[in-house]
Amino acid sequence: MKNKQELNRDIIHKVLDGDAAPDEQQSMMDRIQADPALKEEFDDLTRVLHAIETNERMPAPPFFTAEVMRRLPPRKATLGRRVQNFLLKGRVLRWNMATAFAAMVLMALIITQVVRTRNTPVETAIVPQQGQIVTVTMKLHAPEAHHVAVAGTFNKWKVDANVLTKQENGVWTISIPLKPGEYSYMFIVDGKAWVTDPNAETYSDDGFGNKNAVVRVKT
């Protein structure tokens, strides 16, 4: 059998847990309000919980994702992936002169055809290509910068894998072939400042003030 103090404690925690039905909740609150000691205990616990619940949360440490991605172990490829790799991996071929000449002629014809049918440069940032690969052009206006790179989920957040080229107008650009999907990214200016793309399609916000640019690549 519980004593009065234990019963009072049960009431307080039932209210704090929101476990009581609405009418039961009201009668419990009436009981708490009517008992000064019980009310004091309830108010103290409510304040403690409020302090915990509203206590400031911390953002993830800098480069958290990049460090995790760098440390991921290689995954053993599935059968399908191994077949794909077998079919697509590079090989050393031994050709005789006649075969090599034929291949060169064929390559020249293909290049000529591509150049002939090529349109004027596109203005859009995302250009569909064959084989579900899409070229994404990223731009950052940073006339004072000496070096701009882009790191993101597409390059495992490597800060030196994709370096932008500076144009005469102070805009840095890079075109990267990507598979369809969603990619977070940031620019790294002069090797130290992480800059969010001000013209990104959208942003991923973790709710703690950190913002990555996001590009969605569709076919």
């Binding site: 949360r57 991605m69 991921l72 993101g152 989920t153 495992k156 990619y183 991923s204 990555n212």
Partner: peptide, 15 residues
């Protein structure tokens, strides 16, 4: 085998 996509989940739940 597309490990790069995992970064989306890491970004989302790191904090």
């Amino acid at each position: 085998g597309d490990a790069d996509q995992y970064a989306v989940l890491v970004d989302r739940y790191s904090a």
